[in-house]
Design a protein around this nucleic acid. Structure first.
Lengths: 192, 192
DNA sequence: AGTCAAGCGGACGCGTGCGTCCGTTACGGT
DNA sequence: ACCGTAACGGACGCACGCGTCCGCTTGACT
């Protein structure tokens, strides 16, 4: 449904569009959504006006930029749901979502809070939350996930994970992994 | 050592200073550190220039504003250390620090990241970290805190707690408490 | 090769937020 | 009551970031 590149466009235009998205991914990934649009343009080696012709507003640029990461999220959820061991799937889900969020600085903001009204975002969100709910129900039946867990708890922890993005870049990945490990530990059902 | 109000000042000046700090506490507490200085001035019912005479820069205003909250943090750590049951003290510490951070929106940012070079801040930080280390060692000896816990883990979780500040205000306190509960659950030593 | 429209980018307008200047006000000591 | 000075506040300058305009460039079709 989302045609990515209008093949009717001129070649340089298509190339520039790709360069912009690439640059946006890097810049927003490293500096967060507060990075100025010009920075993206500079990084892509083009003028601001060109960028604004391709993406009329900063929001539009951001939405397009993180479309791929959203697909990655879908894949993670799908794989987790397909896992024969629901608790194993659940743990993988937590770890991989955290890693995705750690890998690019701006994505969690975009995904969790910044654009609640971008309609396909929330549609995705609903679908994914339902899927996680199903996965959690299975893991609870297997006695591995604590019985009082609700999906909002995962959302809460992902919101919290946004906070670790501000640790110095050198330690960010370690911090993210350690956070994920603790979250899993917290969600694990107490034996007995 | 920190004289709060120079008694030599004029009465209206002292009153205005107090009003400013009051307003800053409210505004930064509700909207975060990104709130404009004029907003604080408006809320205090004075002009911007007056505010800038009392606090030459936004940083200075913020530092003074959260001095009291820092004292509250000290008190929490002290109480936790004085608790005869170290694990009980540790849990209280986590809960109360989280509550303090939840109560005012800007404080965690100011405390954890924004001003690493404000020297008395880091001095405080060091002292508090040492105290928490001691408390953790005791709780570990009592077999209640997991043996692989290190102080940085608490710092990590407090960094993460900053992320929950962006949940809608109606649910923020609940979210903060639930987060604290999960953190404690994650830090608890596995029995056996 | 010629032509023309689509694409490009430097320069601009606008809004916002931090910090400052100077004419005016009012506190407090005599 | 008077006066000097500290305190006040509206108006200003400056910087930055988003989005736009217009003259120039260049790809693509014939």
């Amino acid at each position: 449904m989302t045609r990515h590149l209008p093949h009717t466009a001129r070649s340089d235009a298509r190339e520039n569009r790709a360069r912009i998205l690439d640059a946006a991914c890097t810049v927003f990934g490293e500096e967060g959504l507060s990075a100025p649009v010009r920075e993206v343009a500079r990084h892509a080696g083009i003028g601001p006006a060109t960028l604004y012709r391709h993406f009329p507003t900063k929001r539009a640029l951001i939405v397009e930029t993180f479309a791929e990461q959203r697909r990655a999220c879908h894949a993670v959820v799908r794989d987790a749901l397909a896992d024969s061991d629901p608790w194993h799937g659940f743990r993988n889900l937590v770890e991989q979502i955290c890693e995705l969020h750690a890998r690019s600085r701006g994505f969690p903001d975009a995904f969790m809070t910044a654009f609640p009204e971008a309609m396909d975002f929330v549609a995705d969100r609903e679908r994914m939350l339902r899927a996680v709910t199903e996965l959690a129900r299975r893991a609870q039946r297997a006695g591995r996930l604590r019985p009082d867990f609700v999906v909002d708890d995962l959302v809460l922890m992902l919101m919290a994970h946004r906070g670790v993005q501000d640790v110095p870049p050198a330690a960010r990945f370690l911090a993210s992994r350690r956070f994920a490990a603790y979250v899993i530990e917290a969600f694990r059902a107490v034996p007995g």
